[in-house]
Amino acid sequence: MKIVLFDYGNVVSLPQDPEDVARMAGGDPGFEDRYWEVRLDFDRGSLDPAAYWSHVYGRPIGGAELDAVVALDAASWSRPNEETVAIIDELAGVGVPMALLSNMPVSIAESIDTLPFMRPIGPRFYSGRMGLVKPEPEIFHETVAWLGAAPGDLVFVDDRPENVAAAERAGLAAVHFRDAAALREDLKRLLA
């Protein structure tokens, strides 16, 4: 049986709400550039939250201030894409196994794991726990090995074309997520 391997951000979750980003930015016009500048290092676990957020804000961040911005960041990624969640619930209802592979720091993963809409998806592979990030081929190889499946038994769903291409190079079937309606049709074809 095929396993559907979902990405999280912009697939299972909605994109960050601009109001959430504005709260974190506090009026700093360069915030978003710095937020993404070293995000893959944060996602990989090469930077801990204090080092990452100190880079983003350009000054040392710690204590209650660090806790507050980590909570804001987690909340910004916590809004479900209800249309994708409906597909997940449909797949769960017919017994299709699902897993998650996401570029995500541990501090965010801990929050995401508690969200009710995530219950049907498991196991969950987070880059921050693996020390690897998509689109590196090793992250796909390790995920496949842990699942004990052949690469061709996985259908990977991601919104980033470079991650889809990397998954295909690793032998997985892959879907470039554009919207839930297209995903439903792609999955019908690939899971048949």
Rank of each mutant, 00 (worst) to 15 (best):
A165P: 10
V11L: 06
G128Y: 06
A68K: 07
G171D: 13
A167K: 09
P137A: 15
P15F: 14
I121P: 00
D20C: 08
L72F: 00
D48T: 03
V94D: 14
V106L: 14
D43F: 04
L47E: 05
W146R: 14
P18S: 05
P161V: 14
N163F: 09
W53C: 01
P151L: 09
D67Y: 04
E138P: 08
L91N: 09
D48M: 05
V133S: 10
P123A: 09
G9D: 11
M24L: 12
D17C: 06
F156H: 11
I87Q: 07
V164G: 06
P135I: 10
L154M: 14
A92L: 10
L91C: 11
D17F: 03
V56F: 00
S127L: 10
Q16P: 03
W77V: 01
Q16C: 09
A74K: 01
N103S: 08
V4K: 06
L91I: 10
F140C: 08
L72K: 03
D153V: 08
R160S: 10
R169M: 13
A50K: 02
L147C: 09
V155W: 04
L115R: 11
K2C: 04
D43T: 03
F31K: 01
V56P: 00
D158V: 08
G27D: 08
S111A: 15
D48P: 02
H141Q: 14
N81A: 07
P29T: 01
A181G: 11
R129L: 13
D7P: 04
I87R: 02
N81H: 14
I3N: 14
M130Q: 13
G30H: 00
V157Y: 05
S111K: 12
A92F: 13
S102Y: 02
F140A: 06
L187Y: 14
G148P: 07
A68E: 12
R79F: 01
D41Y: 09
P116M: 15
D153C: 07
D28G: 01
G63P: 06
E90H: 15
P80T: 04
S78C: 08
A71E: 14
D158E: 12
